[in-house]
Design a protein around this nucleic acid. Structure first.
Lengths: 144, 144
DNA sequence: ATCGTTCCTATTGAACAGGTAGGGAATATC
DNA sequence: GATATTCCCTACCTGTTCAATAGGAACGAT
């Protein structure tokens, strides 16, 4: 179970842009405050824009802004935008895994893991994570 | 969220060895029936033995056998044996992630994901996945 | 229309996962 | 004890991800 640098950076960038609303936030500012390599970040921002999560504006006083409000964007949306499928097994989406013989039941494990992850990231919006909100909005999702 | 080839192969190998009990199972037989590259598999089996999950026997009619019974080994045990930490963010254990500024809340998301995954893999033993058991032992963990 | 700023793209190199090859060490059979 | 079989270990190759650099294209302000 591995969260890639792309995925981590993408959520942090979206949070920083959401926190700057309604002003535009520059890529260079994101890279500085969140300690993300600028060139790498630019590729991630491009993916987020192509996925329809960001609007970009060029020229002086340009930058990025959210395409939807922070409450309408979930962490899962961001992860899917930069990683394709949310959960992959050996590089393929969890659904596509086919097992032979005694390992047939393993498929259900990965599907259960996928569902468990989905339940967390799809029920958490960017607004839930921003400071100034009630802390621990997530705690009720932790364990039964 | 990425399940590595090592992790997937490791669980499949453990299942195949468990299914062969009490006979010893050879690495070559595992590679053939589960379609795993033999050389790669040998390195995985070495990790599983060092973690105390397998016993190995050399020479003619050698092979591998479980160190504990199939009911006493969980999927989580296997994953930790080959991957170190169960969940990593940018290569580091989920606990070690430190975030600055507006991204502080993101840490709780990864911890919640970690807990959700843990709940699935630590409550599923190898015996639960073997054929001949009641199917769908996992289904009650899927969703609330 | 020009200038400066910003986003966008292409190229290059380091680090790591996935996969391969071959020699060495231990065990059982003959 | 010689031999065949199997596990054990090390080094190597390849493709992808992560990261750095440099230049080109689009936009707003003056």
């Amino acid at each position: 179970m591995y969260v890639s640098a792309r995925a981590d950076y993408a959520v942090r960038a979206m949070l920083a842009i959401a926190a700057g609303e309604p002003a535009l936030v520059k890529a260079a500012a994101l890279a500085r405050t969140q300690e993300i390599p600028l060139s790498f970040l630019q590729g991630i921002l491009l993916d987020l824009r192509r996925a329809g999560l960001l609007h970009s504006h060029r020229g002086t006083d340009g930058g990025y802004t959210l395409a939807r409000s922070a409450g309408e964007v979930t962490v899962g949306d961001v992860l899917r935008a930069v990683s394709g499928s949310l959960t992959t097994v050996r590089g393929l989406p969890a659904d596509d895994a086919t097992y032979h013989g005694v390992a047939t039941g393993l498929r259900d494990v990965w599907l259960a893991v996928h569902a468990a992850i989905e339940q967390v990231v799809d029920s958490t919006s960017l607004a839930d994570l921003l400071p100034g909100r009630r802390p621990g909005a997530l705690t009720r999702n932790r364990l039964p």
